[in-house]
């Protein structure tokens, strides 16, 4: 029964994909090393099992440095998200603020924000603070824009209903607009979370003492002898980005469980 359900589960294809990919990786790595004999073969594509072993061996260090990155990205993310929500609420309440801020919020989405990282690092010259600033800045606008979209998506009849109850403005926000905007808020948060991690790592590469980016760079400069460690740090960086996204997805399920996607049945494809 259990094995049967696993076979039919939607995760099976994904599992096969991952295993297949790892097998191909291992195979290509072997080919580069022994058949084609490319120079620096192990640096270009190291054996999976070697990388896994390194990951395991240095898991303590990797966890510690990854944690530093994640922590700073997280603080910046939370500050940026809070500021974004605040701006969105202000924009939804005041036409003037909206007109002032909205064009800049949209334009900021069109420019390469990450390009600011070195400049901010240049101004602040403090790795902790600049990581927080970059993560916060990157989080701010997607959250503000998506939150505003959520606030605007409120059904007109629902607002009229509140009006018919003679509800006070704060009650309209608290009981109606904020809950209704939660799905929008979470789409912003899910976009912003991996970006915040990327931003934090980027600042570390600019020159810092701690963080996954630092050991990534260090092992890259140490050359081929540290290639497994380098690849491990890349994997940890990737996992941090994916983890940040998953945390937001989980939070969404807890905070806004009424959405159509979370309903049982239907939508099973």
């Amino acid at each position: 029964m259990k094995g049967n359900s696993l076979l039919r589960s939607r995760y099976l294809p994904l599992l096969v994909w991952i295993c297949g990919l790892l097998a191909v990786w291992e195979g290509v790595s072997w080919m580069l090393l022994h058949v084609v004999q490319t120079p620096l073969a192990q640096s270009k594509l190291p054996y999976v099992h070697e990388v896994a072993a390194t990951l395991w061996k240095y898991s303590g260090t990797l966890l510690k440095e990854g944690g530093a990155t994640f922590g700073n990205a997280g603080i910046g993310f939370l500050i940026g998200a809070a500021a974004g929500v605040l701006l969105a609420v202000l924009m939804s309440m005041s036409r003037i603020i909206e007109r002032l801020a909205f064009p800049y919020a949209v334009a900021s989405q069109m420019i390469p924000i990450l390009g600011l990282a070195p400049i901010i690092y240049g101004i602040v010259r403090d790795e902790q603070v600049s990581r927080v600033i970059i993560s916060g800045y990157i989080t701010f606008f997607p959250v503000a824009l998506n939150m505003l979209r959520g606030l605007r998506s409120v059904d007109l009849s629902a607002v009229e209903l509140m009006h018919s109850y003679a509800a006070r403005p704060w009650a309209v926000y608290w009981k109606l607009k904020l809950p209704a905007a939660l799905p929008g808020l979470f789409s912003g948060l899910k976009i912003a979370a991996p970006l915040a991690v990327t931003g934090a790592i980027l600042v570390e590469l600019m020159g810092a003492q701690h963080g996954i980016g630092v050991i990534m760079l260090r092992n890259l400069y140490y050359g081929p002898s540290h290639t497994y460690m380098f690849w491990s740090t890349v994997l940890v960086g990737a996992l941090l980005g994916i983890a940040s996204y998953w945390i937001m997805t989980l939070a969404e399920r807890l905070a806004a469980p009424w959405q159509p996607e979370f309903r049982p049945k239907g939508g099973d494809r």
Binding site: Q109, L148, S187, I242, E261
Partner: peptide, 17 residues
Amino acid sequence: AGGDGPSTSLITTKESI
């Protein structure tokens, strides 16, 4: 990536608003 969660692009927000 989340299996099915909804989310929005960074930029299209402009159109909707």
